[in-house]
């Protein structure tokens, strides 16, 4: 919480990188303090006046954002060492935790495009891998969906709040950055997807697979999703550090999903062994 003695200004340290493959560097800015600031408004202030603490005019810092109310997931970055959304990172709280300075870094598990902007395509590719959708017949009028109990809705709802921000992946010690540099300049989509498909899915995709496997319509294709969870880079890579659930801004029960996926794949393996 804020203390009565508010600073006139504070320092912001940003890890910057001009482009992929370029070296990164720290730049420091001094930002005048105002009430009700969050990290987005800090970045906006720097963008409007991009001058470092030692008086150099530099290019404005690049960052991603959209909704600014923590439902779109765009502005995810590492703030004071912890991955979170810039919009919900309030300056008063950050300065109370670490007086005088705020440190911003891009997420480390994804390739940097520029400054705080990273390429999170892999995150969406994981959703394709686990077939995170309901395979309904068509979009014609076929009446309502299956009836569901309140309990089923209450189990599904928290999982549907996942905004694909990537916090769970950044904090996961088992989720490693995929190096695409071996493909050189013109990496094709196929090459990139093949590389992604060999790497760890991550908590968000495992949770989505369980969401759809729990849905009455999704159940019909549950086996495909379980096969995907058991393929290379699947659920077995999880190391149970449980950081995912600790950093998830939506407090999604990711570790419960992971354990439920563990159970489902156990049963699926036994079934496959005896039924085929």
């Amino acid at each position: 919480m804020t203390t009565s003695g508010k600073p006139a200004s504070f320092e912001v340290r940003i890890l910057r990188q001009d482009a992929p493959g370029e070296p990164s560097r720290w730049e420091r800015f001094r930002v005048p303090y105002e009430t009700d600031m969050n990290v987005i408004s800090v970045l906006q202030k720097i963008a409007a006046n991009p001058r470092t603490i030692d008086g150099r005019d530099v290019a404005p810092v690049a960052w991603e954002s959209n909704c600014l109310e923590e439902v779109c997931g765009a502005c995810t970055m590492v703030i004071n060492g912890r991955v979170r959304q810039a919009c919900s990172a309030l300056v008063d709280q950050l300065l109370a935790d670490r007086p005088g300075e705020i440190e911003l870094r891009p997420m480390s598990k994804f390739p940097v495009y520029r400054d705080l902007v990273v390429d999170r395509q892999r995150l969406f590719r994981s959703l394709v891998r686990v077939r995170a959708w309901l395979p309904i017949d068509d979009y014609s009028d076929r009446g309502p969906g299956p009836r569901q109990s309140q309990a089923e809705q209450e189990q599904a709802y928290p999982l549907t709040e996942c905004m694909s921000c990537g916090c769970c992946l950044e904090a996961c010690p088992q989720f490693q950055k995929v190096d695409l540099s071996e493909y050189g300049e013109g990496t094709s989509d196929e090459q990139r997807n093949a590389a992604f498909d060999r790497s760890f899915l991550g908590a968000h995709a495992i949770s989505q697979a369980m969401l759809f496997n729990g849905h009455p319509i999704g159940k019909t294709s549950a086996a495909e999703r379980l096969d995907a969870l058991m393929a290379e880079g699947g659920i077995q890579v999880c190391g149970n550090a449980q950081n995912c659930v600790a950093v998830c801004p939506k407090e999604i029960p990711l570790t419960t999903s992971i354990a439920r996926a563990g159970r489902a794949t156990t049963i699926h393996t036994i079934k496959k062994f005896f039924d085929h």
Binding site: A171, Q242, A246
Partner: peptide, 18 residues
């Protein structure tokens, strides 16, 4: 070899146990 611990930034009990 496939993991990289990060208890420095994420000092949670389960992460220490990892």
């Amino acid at each position: 070899l496939g993991g990289s611990s990060n208890t420095g930034d994420y000092p949670y009990a389960e992460n220490y146990r990892y």
